Amino acid sequence: MSITAKELAASLGLSATAVSMALNNKPGVSTATRQKVIHAAEEAGYDFSKIKSSDDISGTIYVIFYKTSNAILSYTPIFEELYEGVKLICQKKKIKTRVIQFYEKTDDLDECFADIRGNDCIGIVLVGTEIKKEICEKFLNLRIPLTLLDTYFESLHCNSVLINNRQGAYLATEYLIGLTNSQPGYLKSSYPIYNFESREEGYFQAIKENGMSKSRSIIHSLSPSIEDAMADMLELLDDNVNIASCYFADNDVIAIGAMKAFKLRGYKIPEDIAIIGFDNISESRIVEPSLTTMDVPRLFIGETAARQLITQIESKTFHHSKIEISTHIVKRLSHCL
């Protein structure tokens, strides 16, 4: 059983009022006292979820972009849209937001947690595109309301809001099969994350349901950036690997990189090779030919994450949920004339 605020006050030789003000980030105690109370509460296993918010929520929602590498989160426009969605909902509720860019290789997680505990953080939107489960568990152990954005872990009890990756990949692959009456290849990211793993499942689900053999799929493993995907694909082409007549790509940057490589080696898009990407980034509209892709409603995803988090902050009882947002195909010129 966790320690109560009254017991905490007695152990620190402080009044219950002072401890309450410190825990609830209210004025009336010094910064040193506030940090002392929060540190002691954490050490004693105090349940921070007991802290109630008023109808007018005071405090700040932290939006933390957790990077383990520059492989995925280096494409900033996608994540700017996610943050804009969070910010829009928070502004309507008159809640402040703060962005933290955390890079695992150079930043200190304990310092990040100290910042969160020592300030007015009332909830966290954790953009965990690249995050590992054990790191997510550490954030959950802060006992601050949290919504996990852009990934999911079966064994963790927390809100998750993410793309319906499997469905999107399934729809793209199914569309290519119907269009070309042939088995699509797969331009697979060489960098593994949950989103790509789910897209792979959707791709193979469509292959299986159309009576095609998984073993006959032509799969190319490419780096998830335009330049590196192009270099990888050029190397494969120069090695005379088998080429499919159409491909589903894990994301748009891989698709665009592969398209550039195919064109450099004399292939015509879509006459020789049709390609569908995923994400609908701005470059997909201006590349030649324009890229057919699965559109991701990033602003809405950010808004949904903020709503889920605010509901958790305001509710006395809360049930965790996983929300998957559907995608839809945007037809351009890379899949047909």
Rank of each mutant, 00 (worst) to 15 (best):
L176G: 02
I3C: 08
S182I: 02
A22P: 07
E81R: 05
E200V: 03
Y103L: 12
Y175G: 01
I131N: 02
A249V: 02
G59N: 08
M233Y: 14
E137A: 14
A172C: 09
C336Y: 13
D47P: 05
K96S: 12
T97W: 04
D239Q: 15
Y152S: 05
F65A: 01
P27R: 05
L140H: 06
A40H: 03
Y247N: 01
N280A: 09
Q101C: 07
D107A: 05
A274P: 00
I135G: 02
D55C: 06
T76W: 04
A169R: 00
K36S: 14
N141G: 11
R298L: 08
A244D: 03
A261V: 04
R285N: 07
C158N: 05
A44E: 10
L222H: 05
E42S: 08
S198R: 14
I243D: 01
I226S: 01
G123D: 08
S2Y: 13
E174I: 00
G178K: 15
V99N: 05
Y46Q: 04
I254N: 02
R34F: 15
S15A: 08
S215C: 07
S58R: 09
L23Y: 11
S221R: 08
S20C: 13
H319V: 13
K36E: 15
Y170Q: 00
C158D: 04
G13D: 14
K87R: 13
N165T: 11
A274I: 00
R34C: 13
L146G: 03
G168F: 02
S282I: 06
S30D: 12
K94A: 14
P77G: 03
R117M: 09
L148W: 05
S20Y: 12
V287A: 03
I256L: 07
T31R: 07
V241E: 06
N25F: 12
C90S: 12
G202L: 01
L156A: 04
K133L: 10
A172G: 08
A16E: 15
S58T: 11
I72Y: 00
S223R: 12
S74E: 09
Y62K: 14
T60V: 14
T147L: 08
F278W: 04
S321I: 15
I325P: 11
H335N: 10
N242V: 15
I207F: 00
R298Y: 07
E288A: 08
A44P: 01
M294I: 12
L291S: 03
S74N: 11
K132V: 15
A41I: 02
P224V: 04
K26W: 09
I38H: 03
A10M: 13
L82I: 05
I95D: 03
V296K: 00
F278Y: 14
I286H: 08
A274N: 01
D228G: 10
K268S: 12
I218G: 03
A10T: 14
E314A: 12
I301G: 04
I207T: 00
A231M: 11
S326P: 13
N159L: 09
E111M: 07
Y203W: 04
K331N: 08
D238L: 10
A172L: 09
K96P: 00
G185F: 01
E324V: 08
N251M: 08
E201H: 11
